[in-house]
Simulated assay, not measured.
Amino acid sequence: MASNSITNEDTKEPDKRTAKQEKPRSEAQNEQTKQLIYVGPNLPGGRLSRFTVFMGSIPKHLDDLLEKQPEIEHLIVPVEELSRALARVNAPGTLEHSTFQYLSKGKE
């Protein structure tokens, strides 16, 4: 008996892997939709609160804060890495943990 199975070649349907590759997003689009989240402590003066989400990049109004405390950037991570980042914030001996502790003490 002959096989009745029909393959993608037989139906001329586009392969799903190829279809996804045919719609590449530009770097500018990816930058605009990239979400970052701050996993550090609330900072004095309300300048930056824990779990603040940024779309695309860190806003310019925080430039002076990041200049004074560049370690803050260690606690701004892509949203998709939130779980991993929080685990590191809570793990003594990691850069994220020591940065969180340092910022919690209100050092400038």
Rank of each mutant, 00 (worst) to 15 (best):
K60P: 07
K68T: 13
G45I: 08
P41R: 04
V53M: 15
G40K: 04
P59N: 09
L62G: 03
T52M: 05
I58L: 04
I58F: 02
V39W: 05
Q69E: 10
P41N: 06
I76M: 07
P44D: 00
T52L: 03
T52C: 06
G56I: 09
R47P: 01
L36K: 06
P41H: 03
G46V: 03
G45K: 07
F54P: 02
E71Q: 10
L82A: 14
L62Y: 07
S49H: 12
V79S: 12
E73M: 11
G45A: 07
R47G: 01
L75G: 02
L82N: 12
Q69S: 11
K68H: 11
T52S: 08
E81D: 13
S49L: 12
M55N: 15
E71K: 04
Q35I: 08
F51T: 12
G40H: 05
G45V: 09
R84V: 12
G45Y: 06
H61E: 15
K60M: 12
L75D: 05
R84Y: 12
V39F: 05
I58Y: 01
G56V: 09
K60L: 14
E73T: 13
L62N: 06
P41F: 01
V53T: 15
S57L: 09
E80A: 10
I76V: 14
Q69G: 01
I58G: 01
L43N: 00
R50Y: 07
